[in-house]
Nucleic acid binder design. Sequence first.
DNA 1: ACGGTCGCTATACGCCGTAAATTTATGGGA
DNA 2: TCCCATAAATTTACGGCGTATAGCGACCGT
Lengths: 213, 213
Amino acid sequence: MAPRPTASDRLDRDELLSTALAIADSDGLDAVTLRRVATEFHVTPMALYWHFKDKDALLDALVERMLAEVTLDDSDDLRSVMTTMLGVLRAHPALAEITPLRSMRTEAGLALAERVVGLLRAEGHSPVAAAQLSIFLLNALIGLVVQQPGEVAVPDPAQRGALLAAKRARLKSLPPEAWPHLTETADFFLGLPDEEEYYDRGLTLLRRAIRTD
Amino acid sequence: MAPRPTASDRLDRDELLSTALAIADSDGLDAVTLRRVATEFHVTPMALYWHFKDKDALLDALVERMLAEVTLDDSDDLRSVMTTMLGVLRAHPALAEITPLRSMRTEAGLALAERVVGLLRAEGHSPVAAAQLSIFLLNALIGLVVQQPGEVAVPDPAQRGALLAAKRARLKSLPPEAWPHLTETADFFLGLPDEEEYYDRGLTLLRRAIRTD
DNA sequence: ACGGTCGCTATACGCCGTAAATTTATGGGA
DNA sequence: TCCCATAAATTTACGGCGTATAGCGACCGT
C-alpha cells in the first residue's frame, strides 16, 4: 500500500517484518505472500531471499517478532504472564495460528518457555510436568483466541458474513428435542456478548488445571 | 499408488475420501491435493468437482469422516468420550490440525458437541460454561496430539530428522546457568520416553480443569 | 583504479486451485 | 429400439504461489 516505508532505498529486514505483520493482522495469514510483501516495497519477490532463507524463515521471524511483544519483568507471576501473552495473541490472531510449532524455534519463544517452566517449577510441579504444562498453556491460550466464537479466519467481510450466517442457520434449525444442549447454547457458539467474560472464564479454567494442591 | 480401489469405473465419494484420508495420514495435510487424489484414481483433477464443491468442502468431509470414527454409546461418560476422541485424533494427526474450525460444520461434529455439552451440563456447569468448556476440551486434545514433543508435521524422514537435530543442538547448547529450567527439561521437549504417560498427564490436567467442586 | 562481494533483478519452472466449455456415457420413456 | 436429458468426466486455460538459477550494477577497501 504505502509506496516505501523508509527513506533509504535499501530493504531493511525489520521493516519487511513490520509490513508482513501488518498484512497478517489486517488480511490474514494467507495474505502474507512473498509477492505481496515485495510489491509493497516496490521490489522483486526474490529480493526477500537475501533477508530470509525462505518463506518458512520469514514466518518464524514473524512469530519471533510477535513473541517479543510479551514484555515481562521479574515481578510478573504466572497469572500476569498468561494475561500478557493472551493480550499479544489477541492482537495478532493470524499469527497465533502458526505459533505452536514455531515458538521454540525463536529466541523470544525460548525465553518465554524458560520463564513459564520456572514459574511452574516454583509452584511445585516436577520438571517434566512443568514442561508439559508450559506447552499446554501456550496452546490453550492460542486456542482461546483462534476459536473465539464468532470469529472466522477469513478476513473478507462478505465471505465471513456468509459463513456465520450459514452456521447460524444450521444451529437455529436444529430441533430442540433432538439437540437440547446445542440449541440451548447456540447463541454462545455464534458470537460473544462479552469477550472479556469469555477470556476470564478461559483463564480461570487454566488456573484450575495448573493448581498443584 | 493403487491403480483404482474399486471395480466400478465411476468415482465414489466415499472412496475418494478414503484415499484422501490415507494420503493425509501417511504424507501429511499438504500432500492432500486435488491433483494427487485425482491421479490415484486415474482421473482429471476437475472430476473431483462433481463430488465436492471445492477443496474446502473436501477437507470438511475429511474431518467429518474422522469424527465419525468417534463411536459412542449411551453408557460413555465424559472421561471415556475424551479418551475415545483422543485415540481418533492420534490416528489422524494431520487432520487434527484443521479440525477446530471445521468440526461444527459437520454432522458428526455437531453430534459430538451435543453429547459433550450435555455431559458437562450434567456435571453442574452452566449452559455457557459448558459450551465454552466443550470447545476448550476439543482444542486441548488436539493440542496434545499436534504438539506432541518429538513430532513435526513434515513427513519426509530426512527433513524431519534435520529439524529435530537442529532443535536438539539448540537446546543442548544453552548454558545451564542462564537457562536452568529449559536445560533441565530439554529431553522432554525433544521426545517422549513414554507417550502414554504424556497423554495420561494431559487427560488428568483436563479433568482437573473441568471439575466443578 | 579496480576487483569482489552485497543486494537486487530477470527469467523460468513446476505446483496449486479452479472457471468455462465441451465431450462422453447412461438409463428411462416414446 | 431409438432418443435424449442428464450425469460424470475431460479439455483447456488462467492466475497465483514458492523458489532455483543466473546475471548485473553499485559500492568499498585496497
